[in-house]
């Protein structure tokens, strides 16, 4: 019977380990996304390096926007297309307007396509790093400063940068109540 007990112990360890593994998949997936550009996730903390060199080539970037769950927001890029020099920092902004009658809290999630080029799109500053608070009727300019990495492969076509704006007022209210 001792051998049965040791089998049970070993198997229970496997069960617990596999349960843990399902949670470990979350960071593993994030790392995997970073490496492969899965889903076009971009850096979510500001790029502060200075190892990007200016190169004499250009790439076209298209800016698009979405509002999640039909929230009462106007959210559009100020400029829909920019031809940028690789390695040179640029500024642009999105415009957001609160069309509702109350103050809203929002957050934006970025996505780059083709996803495999997401890692070369470096944001020095971005409104998507922080949550926004916007009053009823207020119009806000939301700025981005970015640079395209000189490691970007050549002959890649256009890059599309998309931001989806989420209204998270309910979540913010709930957590402030706690």
């Amino acid at each position: 019977m001792a051998s049965v007990r040791s089998t049970i112990t070993k198997l229970s360890i496997v069960v617990v380990a596999m349960y843990g593994f399902s949670y470990a998949l979350v960071p593993i997936y994030d790392t995997f996304c970073e490496i492969t550009g899965l889903n076009g996730k971009t850096n979510d903390v500001a790029y502060t390096g200075n190892d990007i060199k200016k190169e004499n080539r250009f790439v076209k970037i298209k800016f698009i926007s979405n509002v999640a769950n039909s929230a009462p927001l106007y959210f559009e890029p100020a400029v829909t297309e920019m031809t940028v020099q690789v390695g040179k920092p640029y500024n642009t902004h999105y415009v957001m307007k609160n069309n509702s009658s109350k103050q809203l809290h929002t957050t934006a999630s970025p996505s780059v396509t083709p996803g495999k080029y997401a890692e070369y799109f470096k944001k020095i500053e971005c409104f998507c790093f922080n949550q926004q608070t916007i009053n009823s009727g207020e119009i806000k300019d939301l700025g981005i400063q970015f640079v395209v990495d000189d490691d970007l492969p050549t002959n890649i076509g256009d890059i599309v940068l998309s931001y989806t704006m989420f209204d998270i007022t309910n979540n913010v209210m709930e957590s402030s109540k706690l």
């Binding site: 889903n39 076009g40 999640a68 780059v112 396509t113 599309v160």
Partner: peptide, 8 residues
Amino acid sequence: AIPGYINE
């Protein structure tokens, strides 16, 4: 078509 992300 996935909310928050772009496919092409």
